[in-house]
């Protein structure tokens, strides 16, 4: 029983990170139909920039803020330099462009920073909190809380504000959105920066637990992608549920089977989803009108 509780807690923590990555996928996918495989690099940049800004003597909150802003700018640059010039190319080409961009960002991070593993201190110390016979790090609460906060923030943004609705309209029909006066180019820029900022925030929150290095982005992107697929690509609720579910599955596998198979879970999930229910848990069935 204690073990189960422990697995649940650690699964929630990891799952919250996957959910944040999946939310990043969702935002860009909604605005452009592109699955942005550089999403994991945003997480890495968030962690790495915070580490180095903190090491340079800045207080942690300021370092984190700088990391989030800089990463958002990288997201905008990705859109302006790589995606926008290829506008009109098939979506598959755009997805391959994002894979290329992720390699570039990773290489640049290796050059600018280094190849070491890094961390910075936890926000509220490292004294584990006892909870129903299991232990949880205070930083885990930060991660889970952060994921829920972002999720609710996004929900309010997309359902209550005109700007958020403009993004949804663009997702629904780009040309129709332009016809009613929505600047769809700006919507794309906004989506990339928002997505990058959320990725960076995930990096900031999780680095004290999992550490960060220039190459952590690949794994996170794949896990986040699996989570988004599981929940239903393009649905924020799906991203949250898919992320947490995947985290729990991983933790259970590591706990009850073998931690060797932990990373295989994400890929089994991708395959199972594609075979059994390609639209995911919350994904709408798509019918093309002819």
């Amino acid at each position: 029983m204690d073990a189960l509780m422990q697995f649940l807690l650690s699964g929630m923590t990891v799952g919250a990170v996957y959910a944040l990555v999946a939310l990043g996928f969702t935002i860009i996918y909604n605005a452009s139909d592109v699955v942005n495989f550089a999403q994991g690099e945003f997480v890495m940049l968030g962690g790495m920039i915070t580490v180095f800004a903190h090491a340079a003597g800045l207080p942690l909150p300021l370092a984190a803020l700088i990391a989030i802003v800089l990463t958002a700018l990288v997201g905008v640059a990705l859109n302006k330099l790589a995606i926008e010039p290829a506008r009109g190319a098939p979506v598959v080409s755009l997805i391959i462009i994002t894979i290329g961009a992720s390699i570039v960002i990773r290489g640049a991070a290796q050059l600018i920073f280094d190849k070491q593993l890094h961390r910075f201190p936890s926000f509220s110390g490292d004294e584990p909190i006892r909870l129903l016979g299991a232990a949880i790090l205070p930083q885990s609460l930060w991660v889970v809380g952060g994921a829920f906060f972002i999720f609710i923030g996004l929900w309010v943004f997309f359902t209550k504000t005109l700007t958020g609705k403009a993004v949804l309209a663009t997702a629904n029909n780009r040309l129709a959105a332009q016809l009613v006066g929505i600047n769809t180019g700006w919507v794309m820029t906004l989506s990339f920066s928002l997505s990058a900022a959320i990725g960076a925030l995930a990096g900031v929150l999780v680095t004290p637990i999992t550490l960060v290095a220039y190459d952590v982005g690949v794994g996170l992107a794949l896990k986040g992608f699996a989570a988004a697929m599981l929940g239903g690509m393009g649905n924020p609720k799906g991203a949250l549920v898919g992320g947490i579910l995947l985290g729990l599955l991983e933790a259970m596998t590591a706990g009850y089977l073998s931690s060797q198979y932990k990373d295989a879970v994400a890929f089994i999930v991708i395959l199972a989803v594609l075979f059994a229910m390609p639209q995911g848990i919350f994904g709408a069935k798509r019918t093309e009108r002819v």
Partner: peptide, 23 residues
């Protein structure tokens, strides 16, 4: 661009429809 024209008071419909199908 179409969104600027829309703001200036010119818009259009399409032969093959541009509707927000999911709304």
């Amino acid at each position: 661009e179409p969104h600027l024209l829309a703001r200036m008071g010119m818009t259009r419909t399409f032969q093959n429809l541009q509707i927000f199908q999911d709304m």
